[in-house]
């Protein structure tokens, strides 16, 4: 078997695996109970799924110029995805989008209460 054929097969495996992760994310988006759990589902095609697809693409294209572009796509995505996730999660937190009955523990609520309490004390003093 030639090297080309091996690379093509590897590329195919990576592409299908990435697509499967995207599908699982689609299912999870519909089935998970609240916003934060859905965000976990969203992280999957955005990180590993995308990396797999990009690797598959790079294995097929095999030219330097294209691979640098793909590397750049990967870097941008990895650098920005956590920031976006944090912003959305933080905006969602103290509100109704979260099923608190499904939480085992919520240690952020106690923290925010304490800060609010400290602030009230300052206002009173």
């Amino acid at each position: 078997m030639s090297l080309d054929a091996v690379l093509d097969i590897a590329a195919a495996v990576f592409l299908v695996a990435g697509a499967l992760l995207s599908l699982a994310a689609g299912v999870a988006l519909l089935r998970f109970p609240d916003l934060l759990t859905r965000m976990h589902a969203a992280a999957k095609p955005q990180v590993l799924g995308l990396l797999l697809v990009l690797i598959g693409c790079a294995l097929r294209l095999r030219t330097g110029v294209d691979i640098t572009t793909l590397v750049l796509v990967g870097i941008f995505q990895l650098a920005t995805a956590p920031v976006a996730a944090h912003m959305v999660g933080r905006a969602a937190y103290p509100h109704d989008d979260i099923r608190t009955d499904l939480l085992v523990t919520d240690e952020l609520a106690a923290h925010l209460d304490r800060i609010a309490g400290a602030r009230d004390d300052e206002v009173r003093a």
Binding site: A28, T37, K44, L102, D106, A109
Partner: peptide, 26 residues
């Protein structure tokens, strides 16, 4: 970790009749 966690979450999504529970941990 990335691969293991991705597969776990995918399985969690596809598993029938299961509502995942979560936690906010400091």
């Amino acid at each position: 970790d990335l691969v293991v966690a991705s597969v776990q979450i995918a399985w969690m999504a596809l598993r029938p009749g299961h509502t995942p529970r979560s936690a906010i941990i400091a």
